[in-house]
Amino acid sequence: MNRQPDNRTRIIAVMAEILEIEPSTIHGAQRLREDLGMDSLGSLELLSVMSQELDLELEMEHALNITTVDEACAFVSRHYAQQHRAASAGA
């Protein structure tokens, strides 16, 4: 599977794989806690596993404020874009 997280569908696919649910049941506005059953530590763990799956370095500080699927996708995409840019600049 292509792991590049520049596409929202791929991020959601990884999320669904980790949560063991159908990707089609995940929607942007869903709250990680109330709708997907994760508490704040659970969502950090999720982001951590996603960062491993997607080969990304993520910081803990900003990850703490994430409460919805949309926010998680934006967070991962932003980091991906930054790291991708840095990698191309370095190459």
Partner: peptide, 11 residues
């Protein structure tokens, strides 16, 4: 530990 391991520490 936060600085050294980042979010990977959660694993």
């Amino acid at each position: 530990v936060r600085q050294r391991d980042g979010l990977s520490v959660m694993r």
